[in-house]
Design a protein around this nucleic acid. Structure first.
Lengths: 344, 344
DNA sequence: CTGAAAGCGCTTACAG
DNA sequence: CTGAAAGCGCTTACAG
């Protein structure tokens, strides 16, 4: 342990009690707002608390009461604005519930995730909100967290757990994007980017395929191109798309980063995104509205998701035995310039 | 308090001691890795710890040892990628030091900031890293935090405190940007955006003025235009710039968001940013490299700043009586297309 | 309405 | 090398 001494000796209930000539119990009752204590006594104690700048030691109180006033928030990628907004929403809602947020970030590493969680669990959080790293080991997490603490899983499905789960409506989102392209007259539409083994990519592909089938279009294998969910890799895979499916006129992209990468790749080949090739994204990151052309995408409202996650977790904390919940957060199609005009 | 019961009764040192037929003291010594305990005893105890899935209760240990293993991180705007990256860096470095991060976000509200800090302080963090909200009340913070806890202030100067301070080299950054524009042949250069009463804006203006003076250019009052540090307001202020200083050919912007706002404003007037009017930013947010034209700006390396902040704070925790430190983090000019070619 | 006593889960001198 | 005892700062029955 590298822990260290906090500031000079803190004022405790004992100090206050002594100064007021009452017992520590009475001070405690004042602190907790009990109606039992006489108004005069209360006033005296409160004045003394203020005078001595007493700071409540919540850790001690939690120990004695066998309670917790913290929630752990473990985020796979805090540098992604989507998750940063999510974290802001979680913290906001937890704060309103008088809980404090214990932050952990894993940088998409399952090993770090185990280490971070092992450390956070020692601080006895009332619950854990987990946005899992890619390729998380569900069984290892189960073993580590056991039934010890309520857990809410966000965004990425974890196999075989019975924890609460909150995710975006990936399927419907991709379906909306695809239908938009179909309505504009496109018929040869690729699904570009993402790792096919991730649950969110699978679901988005599902929505895309659904829309195509409903339109009576049989998707060709060449229309499905994988990439890492980054700009750089997406740009590099543009060549693969045009080799395998040279006649596509539009792409539903796994997310906004991928869409921007594809747009870079298109330009590099002399193809103007929007005008000559239609592109949609997913997430509505802040660049989306600003880029040229602005990106048609799906708005996920990450802050609202964060608030929702916090609320779901706190409900679970209050009622540990309720059946597990699965909530799908709605997404909204933001129509912008990256899909160009109606096709002839 | 809305705190709640954690999971079913936890395994404690007493349980382990009983099961092994040793005292709680011995178990504690094993937990803390003391060399005093016999290897056989240690092995037995460790096996039992594993078997019963013992989880260390760090709050109890901290209480007894009068230590803390947490650091509070209070961020003015977590939805800004710059601060999100900063937070990720802080958390990363704190984790390596075996500390846990208590997160608080204030959404730029000084009132929320007071409330958030009041709550975090009750969890007895070893120290506080504070990226202050705009218009923070330094005296109120001083009163709240007192000399109780080590504090490191990031990014925005707070008047009259003696806390450690870490900030970007705003002055040098703006100077570099201005010198770049001068070298390209511009001589009528505005400083656009930001609130003149914020310390970072003041410092950036200072660097800008310095560069102009060194070049023998007397800045005109009309070259200094204020705005909120947002795209929307910056776009709206473009008109003001052209009214007050119609003949400027370039602008050093307060930050990237402002620069993007100005670029929008320019386009709305039919002026092509980059080609017809040169623009620089500050922060190097991820859009900067991607926009058309890509934005010349100053890279601040927020993650590295976060790590630095964590390290400075932990040093302060170790040595509370060392003199206050002021550290200025270097910035790097990223030359991109938004300044166009050399002027004739 | 107030106080004395016990206890949350841990650690640390101090004996032996 | 191990155990008995005290104590960190709080709260909570239980008497009075």
């Amino acid at each position: 342990m590298t822990a260290t001494r906090p500031g000079r000796k803190a004022v405790t209930v004992t100090d206050i009690a002594k100064a007021c000539g009452v017992s520590r119990a009475t001070v405690s009752l004042v602190l907790r707002g009990s109606p039992l204590v006489h108004v005069d006594t209360r006033a005296r104690v409160e004045a003394e608390l203020k005078r001595q700048r007493y700071v409540y030691n919540r850790a001690a109180a939690n120990l004695r009461r066998q309670t917790s006033s913290s929630v752990a928030l473990v985020i796979n990628d805090l540098s992604n604005p989507f998750f940063a907004e999510f974290a802001a929403g979680v913290d906001e809602a937890l704060g309103e519930g008088r809980y404090v947020t214990l932050l952990g970030s894993t940088a998409e590493s399952p090993e770090r995730q185990q280490a971070v969680l092992a450390s956070l669990v020692e601080h006895a959080p009332a619950g854990i909100i987990l946005s899992p790293a890619e390729h998380s080991d569900g069984a290892a997490l189960q073993r580590l967290l056991g039934a010890r603490t309520p857990v809410l899983v966000f965004n990425r499905e974890l196999p075989g757990h019975d924890w609460d789960f909150l995710a975006l409506d990936n399927q419907r989102g991709a379906r909306l994007a695809t239908e938009h392209l179909l309505a504009l007259g496109h018929s040869r539409i690729a699904f570009f980017g993402g790792h096919a083994d991730s649950s969110s990519c699978r679901q988005r592909r599902e929505g895309y395929l659904e829309a195509l089938r409903d339109a009576g279009i049989e998707p060709e294998p060449g229309w499905l191109v994988e990439s890492s969910p980054t700009r750089v890799d997406a740009a590099a895979r543009t060549a693969e798309l045009f080799e395998r499916a040279p006649d596509t006129t539009a792409a539903v992209c796994y997310n906004d980063n991928v869409a921007f990468g594809l747009m870079l790749g298109l330009r590099a080949r002399g193809v103007r995104p929007g005008a000559e090739f239609a592109v949609t994204g997913f997430d509505d990151i802040s660049e989306a509205a600003l880029s040229t052309p602005p990106l048609t995408t799906l708005a996920a409202q990450p802050r609202a998701c964060g608030r929702m996650a916090a609320e779901m977790l706190l409900e679970r904390v209050r009622d540990p035995d309720a059946p597990p919940r699965r909530v799908i957060a709605p997404v909204r199609l933001m129509v912008r310039g990256s899909c160009g005009e109606q096709r002839p």
